[in-house]
Amino acid sequence: MERHGGGAEPVVRLVNVTKRIGKRTIIDNLTFDVPPGEVFGFLGPNGSGKTTTIRMMVGLMRMTSGEIYIKGRSIRTEFEAAVRQVGAIVENPEMYKFLTGYQNLVHYARMLPGIGKRRIDEVVELVGLSDRIHDKVKTYSLGMRQRLGVAQAILHRPALLVLDEPTNGLDPAGIRELRDYLRHLAKHEGTTVLVSSHLLSEMELMCDRVAIIQQGRLVDVRPIRRDAGAEKLEILFEVDRPDTASEVLDGVVLRTESGGIVVTAGREETADINARLVAAGVRVYGIRTVTKSLEDQFLEVTGGGRIG
């Protein structure tokens, strides 16, 4: 298994987690760690077992075998101590519709020690619901319910925030806002965030690391690169004469495409190559990176994403 440097204790640790329902194995021997302070993505096609795993993580479902530790506490044998560290939205943020947003928060605050009115107000302010918090939840839009969901999840400043498909049904602005907010939590409050999704592009923007699962099995855990400048990437030069360009560069070219050439280069090399092309009289119309998107990687590792 992948080891994370620095010796920091993982916030979540799954050890050989298996879930069988009848004869069907839903989750098969899942083992991975979620390191602290990261936004950790949990990625898989529909029906791959993301939600089941999350439900086991928060004690809504039992494991058939294996163990899940939250900050070293077993969710099975020390449920109350383990779940105290967790705030979560499992699927849709369902609230009591006949209560106001505020009453809903009071309801959850009462179930946790040491959360007063001040903290509730603070959280309401944080998620930007101050104007409507005293309205009944049934009058809320989906986006507002999502914010209220986040509010109840972070009331007790959990070490781990678990969000299952948090962007479902949100408009682009709402998604953007949520994404910024999660990154803020991870960066400034040290909260570890675990997000599940089947929206690959979303995860790419949101996460530091993703675990990919398929048919209940872990396929891969990989970091997501954010700073493209430091490493060599595939760069596409759009030029008028690809053949000439490839002669000029002599050997650097990875492949020639219609209307362009692809090279592997770092930041500075890219500029050098451009200068050489221009000096040789090749017209350069555009330069862009052809990073493999997470989607390509995902389809690659899951072999086209059969739905199991």
Binding site: E80, V83, E94, Y96
Partner: peptide, 14 residues
């Protein structure tokens, strides 16, 4: 049926 059970059971209470 309202789905609120999920948020109710993930609190530190048995």
């Amino acid at each position: 049926s309202n789905g609120t059970i999920k948020l109710l059971l993930i609190r530190p209470w048995s």
